[in-house]
Design a protein around this nucleic acid. Structure first.
Lengths: 217, 217
DNA sequence: ATTATCTATAGATCTATAGATAATGC
DNA sequence: ATTATCTATAGATCTATAGATAATGC
């Protein structure tokens, strides 16, 4: 069966729905919901404009698919960290690193989410119920770890929620500022993007460490 | 002369050009260059659409006027700090506070500038030459102060450019995250906007202080 | 029959301008 | 005369759909 099915023209036969999704993902992440037009997406995907509406009905629906996929990937990136087979600090540091490295691998993600929160908050709100439980689970896993460690007197007393908020905040604002850093690169001793990211990661880990072990060492 | 000129209808006689500017400023700061339309601006200013083009020729020109005015205000906010009649730390802390307080008074400024840098970098670029010298002057004023203090052995050796970049970064990312904080307020122990800002300011000053005096105390 | 695709077009907007008319300054 | 204002409209886009036609699966 599969032998008879020769690929006469492998290129144009590729899944059009997938082509639309790919183009939409790239353009929405790059430009945000409002500035990426369905016309551009169709052009980039190499399909007629009508195909977008055939497969996805509305622009909003294409966008929600992209947003949901992106958020799914994001929360999944935390999964591997949620096992405590190493000492506290190693596990915790891995948590920070995993979060940061996900953002390195998806440098457009934070600006994209930020843009969406600013200009189309209702679209993000629609997915809140879906992802809130997972986020809460990851946060409480780490919070419990911190409380346990603090109770045993091996780290300073800190409000776990504050510390975790700080770290997420630091990580995310690094990537918010990445486009700015690129724009200003060269000026005023601004380092290139790679060094900037390296330096930020080390700095964030250092801040967390000093916050946890500062009063003890 | 002025006696004869009775205000028959004081409301509608207000300066239309100013009304357009005011509306444009509000809408551009709120929505950014691409999403704020001239139609909306005209409506908000209570003038015909044609008046916008009569006074400002193009949308881009209105925008540049707003952007320039905003940046002017921003760099002017540094002026009062540029006098060293107090001890080093007091002057330096006042520098951080002034910067932060300007952003408190103009909470839309950073998101606006960020949005513009992301989506219309060429428009910001056009003003770079105008404002770069002033920014450089303020930075070098503080950098010199730090170098002098470090040479006298009263603070740790730090790279002044790095430290100042850190502070500007911290201050600005606080306001980048403000809309997000508002959006998440209530969830996961997120404080309200006012407390969030207070806490951030104290934290940023504390980070700078520990960086400068950490190894000494 | 159903699924996939295309052309053509409706109906909203948007920016910008043309051209007429009213108000103002010599 | 110049400055300010309005109505009307051109010309681009944008999202979305209608309706015809080709491809595919029973």
């Amino acid at each position: 069966m599969s032998d008879k099915c020769q690929d006469k023209n492998p290129e144009p036969t590729v899944n059009r729905e997938q082509a639309i999704m790919d183009a939409a993902e790239e353009l929405f992440l790059e430009m945000g919901y409002n500035l990426a037009t369905t016309t551009m997406i169709a052009k980039k995907a190499g399909v007629t404009h009508a195909m977008l509406h055939y497969y996805f009905r509305t622009k909003e629906h294409i966008f929600m698919t992209v947003l949901e996929k992106t958020l799914e990937e994001f929360v999944l990136s935390f999964r591997p960290v949620m096992s405590k087979d190493e000492p506290f600090w190693e596990t915790f540091e891995k948590g920070i690193s995993t979060h940061f490295d996900f953002l390195v691998a998806h440098p457009r993600f934070v600006p994209f989410l930020y843009d969406t929160l600013l200009h189309n908050p209702e679209l993000v709100g629609r997915l809140k119920e879906k992802f809130a439980p997972v986020v809460r689970k990851v946060l409480s896993f780490h919070a419990a770890m911190i409380r346990e460690e603090a109770a045993a007197g091996r780290i300073s007393m800190v409000d776990p929620v504050q510390l975790l908020t700080d770290i997420v905040t630091f990580n995310m604002s690094t990537f918010l500022l990445l486009p700015v850093a690129r724009n200003l690169a060269g000026a005023a001793g601004m380092p290139c993007a790679e060094r900037f990211l390296e330096a930020r990661k080390a700095e964030i880990v250092a801040i967390a460490k000093s916050r946890l072990y500062g009063k003890l060492q």
